[in-house]
């Protein structure tokens, strides 16, 4: 099958992850990976991002598929249940807001900047080599550390399930995927009601 430009977006995702090792402020760019899927879902009512543009999915697909780093076994039933998918989305939200709260505390001067990347919401890895001071408020850096933690954590989780199950197992419980699917469901239900009324 002919390759399209968007089949190479894994390079963008990989570059993003690498940049975070050199200057943590690049983590801000990751907001694109959050907003683009949501905008596509809200405006067009599709999961176009998952279906075409998700570089993270492509990385898992390449490593697990072409590089053969996946056992290619079925994912456990509970991991694809609505309970787990929605539960993980809620958990992700809570952790995200906690990260925003920490950012706020640094902005407000109530807390000092912590130059750590927290992996799997538990392990605090020193990351001071990627912070060289900034023109911006330390709060901006705190958000970068927090956001990069989210991105790295999801990559690690995705890699683990890639190895254990099928290459793109992450797609099954990816919070962004769950969220965009929910938006599409709501949007299409609404569209249906409108069509029925006409």
């Amino acid at each position: 099958m002919k390759k399209r430009w968007y089949d190479y977006l894994w390079i963008v995702e990989l570059t993003y992850l690498v940049l975070g090792f050199f200057n943590i402020l690049f983590a801000w760019l990751g907001l694109l990976f959050f907003f683009i899927p949501l905008i596509i879902a809200a405006v067009r009512g599709t999961k176009g991002y998952c279906n075409r543009y998700c570089g993270r999915g492509q990385i898992f697909g390449l490593l697990g598929g072409r590089f053969g780093l996946s056992r290619k076994k079925d994912i456990p039933r509970w991991m694809k249940s609505k309970w787990f998918r929605y539960g993980f989305l809620i958990f992700f939200f809570i952790m995200f807001f906690q990260m925003l709260w920490n950012t706020y505390l640094v902005f407000a001067g109530a807390q000092d900047l912590r130059q750590v990347v927290t992996l799997l919401w538990t392990f605090k890895l020193p990351w001071n080599w990627a912070y060289h001071g900034t023109l911006f408020h330390p709060g901006a850096a705190q958000f970068a550390f927090g956001f990069y933690s989210v991105m790295l954590t999801s990559t690690v989780l995705g890699l683990v399930t890639m190895v254990l199950f099928k290459p793109r197992s992450w797609c099954v419980y990816c919070p962004m995927g769950t969220m965009t699917q929910l938006i599409c469901k709501a949007k299409n239900r609404k569209d249906h009601t409108v069509t029925e009324q006409n």
Binding site: M1, A41, G45, T46, K47, G48, C50, N51, R52, G57, G61, K80, R85, R168, C171, V172, G177, T178, T180, Q181, I183, C184, K185, K187, N188
Partner: peptide, 24 residues
Amino acid sequence: TACVACGCCAKVCPLSAIQIWRGV
């Protein structure tokens, strides 16, 4: 009920016989 609409299936189908319907 369990489909997550990720689109991995559509990518590999040699006949474009499977597609994601409205992100659902």
